[in-house]
Design a protein around this nucleic acid. Structure first.
Lengths: 328, 328
DNA sequence: GTGAAAGCGCTAACAG
DNA sequence: CTGTTAGCGCTTTCAC
C-alpha cells in the first residue's frame, strides 16, 4: 500500500470540518475574520493532527520566504573566526524569536556568486552583511537588486541601515579612564583614517582630551599604521616622545605593540586597546580594552533586519552597547 | 508608472519566443526532449535577459528545496567555536558546488524547536548534525520524521550515515611514533569509554603496542577520566608509575595534564594529544598532536549529505583524513 | 519535439 | 463571518 500523502493539508482539514480552505487558512494564519468558535475548532484539529502549513506554498503565494541571509567571508582569518560565529548565533536567536530562518552565504573577496544566487533565486527576504573588509561590492549589488539589507558594522553610505558599536563613545570612555589613572603622556597608535571606524576612534580619543582640558600632542598621535613593522616603529616613536601609556586602535596593533615593548625591554609603559580579541589575552602589559558582546551585536542586527522586512520602524543606525574590561 | 513585474518568468519567454511554457521549462532545466535549436534559442534569450527561475515555485512543484540544514549547538563553549565555524564553512563550500544553500539551525541541549520548525516547514531536503554532546535526541527526531541526515562525527547507531575522522588509525599512528621515539613508558589518559570515540582511541593505542611487540601496562592506562581534577590525579598516577610520556585522549585532558606537570614541577615527562585545539597551543611540554582539517571535514559531510539526497551511492561511514603535528 | 492542462499547497481579493 | 475563485511560477503527465 503506497503511502498516499504524508502530510495533512488545508483541504483535508477543510473537508473534514465541513469548511472551506480559505476559512481554515484564515483560522490558522490568524489573518482575516473568523468566528471564535470556528477558529477554535480548526486550531484544535490542527493541533491534535499535527498540521503544519507548507511554508513553500505559502512563500509562493505571499512572495515571502521568512528566511534571512547572512553573508560571511569564507576566508575569515582564524582570529576573526569567533566574531562571525558568535555574531551568527546572535542572528539565529533573533530570527528564531520571530520565526525566521537563517541562510548563510559565504563570499570570497572577489566572488559573490553565492550571494547572487540566493538573491536571484529569491531564497531570502533580506540580507545581513557582516563586517568585512570589502563591504562595498556586496552592498552595491544588493542596493542594485533592491534587496533589503542591514550591515553589521559601519558603512560610509548614510542610506544603508546599519548596526554598530558606538565606537566614538567607547573610545572616549576608555581614553577618559586612562587619563584619570594619572597617566600624563598618553599616546595613540591608529590604523588608516580612511576607515570610518578609525575616524571614530580618533574622534573619541580627541574629545576625551578636550573634556579633560588637556591638549593632544601631535608627536603622540600616530595614524595610518598598518602591518606589524609599522606598529613597532610607532611604538618606538611613542616611547621616544616619552609616552607612559599607549592606546591601540585595534587588537592587532595592541598585540604587536605589546610584543615590541617586551622585546625592546622598555618598562613603565602600559597599553590599552580600543578593540578586544583573543589575540590580546596573553599580554601582561595590557590594562584595559573596549569589549563588545558580539552575540548581542548579531542579535540586534537580526532584529533590525526583520523589523525592516516587516515594515516596522527602524533606526537608520543602531548602536550596540560596549563595556570596558580591566585586565590589571 | 507602477513597476509591473520585476522578474521575467517562463511565460514571458514562452510568448516572446512563440513557444509554450513547458518547452521553455524543459530547455532551461535540461530535462525532457527539446530540439537543439529551440534549446539554444531559449538559453540565449534567458542569458541575455537575465532570467533565473523562481526557486520557490520550482520547490513547490518538485517538493524539493535544494536547501540543507546544519544543526549547531547554540551554546558552543568558546573553545569549541572554531570547530563549528570551520565545519560550517566546509559545508557551505560543498553546498555551493552543487547549487544547494545552507540553513543553520541552532539547538540548545533541551530545545530542538528550531530544528523541528525547519523540518515541519519543509525548508530543507536534509540535515547535517554536527558533533554534539547530545546527538541522540535530534537524531531520533530526524529518524522519526524520516528526514535524510548525516552526522559529523560518530554515532553508535550503525544505520546512520556518518562522516568522521579515522580516530583509530590516527591514534595508532601517533602512539607508534611515540614508541619509536624511544619512549619506554608511555601512559594513556582517556575520558569515559562509553563514548565511541574513546573506545577508538583506546583501540588505536593498544594496537600500536601490539604492532611494536610491547605489552600494555595496566597501571599506565587510565580510563574514564572526566573533569580537571580527575585529570590531575591521573597525571600523578602516571608519574608514580614512572611514565616518561603521557598520551592524552583529547585537548582538554592535554591542557590540564600540562598544567599539572608544570604546577607540580615534574620534569622529564612529555605529552602528546589525540585531539588538537587552540587550548593546547601554549604548552611547551606538548610534542605531537593528531590534527584534523575541520573545513574539509565539513566539506566531506556536506558532500555526503547531498549525494544521499540525490540518491547517489554513499558510504555508510566516510573517513576524513588527519595528520600528525609535531610541535617540538 | 512541442503544447495543453492539471496540479504543488497556500493566499487574497471579491462576493455574499 | 464564510465560501468561491483566481492565481503565485514551475513541473509534469499526456496527447498530438
Amino acid at each position: 500500500m503506497p503511502a498516499k500523502r504524508q502530510n495533512l493539508i488545508l483541504d483535508d482539514i477543510a473537508s473534514e470540518l465541513g469548511l472551506s480552505k480559505s476559512t481554515v487558512s484564515r483560522a490558522i494564519s490568524g489573518k482575516g475574520r473568523v468566528s471564535d468558535e470556528t477558529r477554535q475548532r480548526v486550531l484544535d484539529y490542527a493541533e491534535t493532527h499535527g498540521f503544519t502549513p507548507n511554508s513553500i506554498a505559502s512563500s509562493l503565494a505571499r512572495s515571502r520566504t521568512n528566511n534571512i541571509g547572512v553573508v560571511i567571508p569564507s576566508e575569515a582569518f582564524s582570529n576573526e573566526i569567533p566574531f562571525f560565529q558568535e555574531c551568527l548565533m546572535g542572528v539565529c536567536e533573533a530570527a528564531a524569536k520571530r520565526s525566521y530562518d537563517v541562510l548563510v552565504a559565504t563570499i570570497a573577496e572577489d566572488d559573490i556568486s553565492v550571494l547572487k544566487r540566493i538573491v536571484s533565486n529569491q531564497k531570502v527576504d533580506g540580507i545581513l552583511l557582516t563586517r568585512s573588509l570589502v563591504l562595498d561590492y556586496p552592498a552595491d549589488f544588493l542596493k542594485n537588486a533592491r534587496v533589503p539589507f542591514v550591515t553589521v558594522g559601519s558603512s560610509s553610505d548614510p542610506n544603508i541601515v546599519q548596526v554598530d558599536t558606538d565606537t566614538r563613545t567607547a573610545c572616549r570612555n576608555l581614553t577618559r579612564e586612562t587619563l584619570q589613572k594619572s597617566k600624563t603622556r598618553v599616546a595613540l597608535i591608529l590604523g588608516p583614517v580612511a576607515y570610518i571606524v578609525n575616524q571614530d576612534r580618533l574622534d573619541g580619543f580627541t574629545s576625551a582630551f578636550q573634556a579633560a582640558g588637556k591638549p593632544v600632542e601631535d608627536a603622540l598621535v600616530i595614524k595610518g599604521v598598518t602591518g606589524g613593522k609599522a606598529v613597532k616603529e610607532a611604538v618606538m616613536q611613542a616611547v621616544a616622545a616619552e609616552a607612559d601609556c599607549i592606546l591601540c586602535g585595534d587588537d592587532f596593533i595592541c598585540a604587536k605593540a605589546a610584543e615590541q615593548l617586551l622585546a625592546s625591554g622598555v618598562t613603565g609603559v602600559r597599553i590599552s586597546s580600543f578593540y578586544n580579541s583573543d589575540v590580546i589575552r596573553d599580554y601582561s602589559l595590557v590594562d584595559s580594552v573596549v569589549n563588545v558582546d558580539v552575540r548581542s551585536y548579531g542579535f540586534a542586527a537580526g532584529e533590525t533586519l526583520i523589523k525592516l522586512l516587516e515594515h516596522e520602524p527602524v533606526e537608520q543606525k543602531t548602536y550596540v552597547s560596549h563595556s570596558i574590561l580591566h585586565y590589571h
